[in-house]
Design a protein around this nucleic acid. Structure first.
Lengths: 343, 343
DNA sequence: CGATCAGTTGGGAACGTGCACACACAGCAA
DNA sequence: TTGCTGTGTGTGCACGTTCCCAACTGATCG
């Protein structure tokens, strides 16, 4: 009467069952599971056979309870959710991190915390020790979540240098300033002299650094810095469109635009098209990221390639090292100019 | 000497600490935590105050160990990963499910299983009981993961009717056939008579049903079914582009195309543009999904809106009900024609 | 020959929680 | 009084694992 009905979910085998099946003790099975040190070849073989026969899988909850580790990593996004889904960069980054962690057999927990309410819930969830570390893919200055996690001592790696935080936080970033310099030099090399820019949000490192690179190259070329050529955006397609309209209104003679993200560049293209400007004949457009948006755009975007695959694998490497007890570290990776149709 | 260094992670408070702080027993604290039945107002207040003071958060590993529940849900995608990141539909669905589950304070575990190797790992992970249920967002026929999970008795809700599976599996789907009918009728109402189609993969319910709706309406309008007007795709942008080229080669007089996804429709637009056909003047193009890709396209796509927000909330509702012991259920939701520039 | 040591094994304790149970107490009916 | 019901409270046990310590082997060393 108390037996499980056929087809129902029967009690999964425990380490105890395996030990009995193999004729050894729990301790020996546990040792086999965790590296196999101090176990005789005979016992090792018997245990492995028993595991195969019983179909045993370790109960991670029980293990986590005693080790204090969860063997999982969180992928935390504190942006409004639209940003995540609109911006292909996040997708690429997520895929890269998933793959890098798969090599360690560690599942990735995707956490979206767009509202303050969700941020509180997520913070509680994380500080409860349900993930061993966090990959933070948004880094506005003054982000309360990052600060709270840092205070709680949660291992943390940011994508892009966090601005407002104390120095003791790891991050991995592309060389934004250098990439911006490459692009603006490229635009100048095409003979353009009225080079405008649509910046990223200026409370993010990417926004600040790319603008700085733009300014540097113009200065080095002996061109005056004309603030009518500078408008700011928030990385969204819509802000690129609005930015380009501003630009055209304030500086109608603009002949090139360096846009701080591909997605915004799509918006810029839309606005230019509507204004009757041809790309690249009348206005050359350079993007940033080399995201899928770059090849989806018409014309296809010349852009600065961020090495997303390396960024994600480095983030994972640094985070795992930090969980293992190492000190925080910062990694800067080089970018690359990719020429397409828009310049 | 054994004290924690300042700034380090100190031992988190347990239910024991809270009980001592509040002057009650563990059991009372546990009762407050789980609903507060059979607890006096005085004790309730004392416990809540103690929780606030100690900063206690429940240890989910310990709870899961005894309850056998993980209080988390898996979002499982067995497609090759590129599909997930290219296709905006998945993003919208993911967001909807995340939000719906947030209302229940349940975190969502995103699992990508593109390769057979990963599928094995993920299956093991799931059947080990580390999620309470699975939202399955891919449903090719013969998907081995779905079958394995069903056999293991894991609560499961698919997005779209699974073709090859036994009937006892829940699913939520839009009314694909009816949506396709609406679109084709719309194209005919514009006076088009050579209406082609680029189908979805024909081992998925969406692919099959949308094609069926297309055929039905043509037949009802007294138009002959011309197989030169039918090409199949796989929902990717690239397959839409290739499909349109096929279509133009085999039926140059085509004056409208019903494309089974917005993403493929983007590819169709690209191919038509390259072939010098104007949209919608020469060829009207209708998509399916009303995903972000529809408004990103140039011209913006007329399409069939899938109610993604309702689909995701229904998937969550049905899954939670099933975890609670209810029987599997199927839900079909209506679609809506959205007119834009491409027709 | 006793002592030491590296390798190997078994079993007790603990991790933090939920649950079943025992129990206390008040109110009320027999 | 005795019994009974419903509410509120404390305690032992179990969940499945890892960690730690003790014990047992041979082999080597002083």
């Amino acid at each position: 009467m108390t037996m499980n009905a056929a087809g129902g979910r029967r009690r999964p085998p425990t380490i105890h069952d395996v030990a009995r099946e193999a004729g050894v003790s729990r301790g020996t099975v546990s040792r086999v599971l965790n590296g196999g040190h101090y176990v005789s070849p005979a016992a090792q073989e018997a245990v492995n056979a028993a595991i195969r026969r019983t179909g045993y899988v370790v109960n991670r909850h029980a293990r986590s309870l005693i080790t204090g580790r969860s063997d999982s990593i969180g992928f935390l996004l504190t942006e409004p959710q639209e940003r995540f889904f609109e911006d292909p960069n996040f997708n690429v980054l997520l895929r890269g991190c998933t793959q890098a962690l798969a090599a360690h057999d560690i599942p990735l927990l995707l956490m979206l915390a767009g509202t303050e309410d969700e941020r509180r819930r997520i913070t509680r969830y994380i500080t409860a020790g349900h993930v061993d570390g966090v990959l933070l893919v948004s880094s506005h200055s003054g982000d309360p979540v990052a600060e709270r996690l840092r205070e709680a001592g949660v291992p943390l790696v940011a994508c892009g240098k966090p601005i407002g935080l104390a120095s003791k936080v790891s991050y991995v970033a592309a060389d934004d300033r250098d990439g911006a310099r490459d692009m603006v030099r490229h635009l100048l090399s095409l003979g353009r002299r009225r080079v405008g820019t649509v910046t990223g949000p200026l409370d993010t490192p990417g926004g600040v650094e790319r603008l700085a690179g733009y300014g540097e190259v113009l200065a080095e070329a002996g061109l005056e810095f004309d603030e009518r050529l500078v408008v700011s955006g928030d990385y969204s397609r819509a802000s690129g469109e609005a930015g380009a309209e501003h630009l055209l209104a304030r500086a109608p003679d603009v002949d090139a635009v360096f846009v701080a993200s591909d997605l915004m560049a799509q918006g810029v293209l839309t606005a230019l098209h509507r204004a009757g400007r041809r790309v690249p004949e009348d206005v050359a457009v350079g993007g940033f990221d080399d995201s899928p948006a770059a090849v989806a755009a018409r014309p296809e975007l010349t852009t600065i390639r961020q090495p997303w695959d390396r960024i994600s694998s480095e983030m994972v490497r640094v985070l795992l090292a930090q969980i293992g007890g190492e000190d925080p570290a910062a990694v800067i990776l080089p970018t690359e100019l990719v020429k397409r149709e828009s310049t």
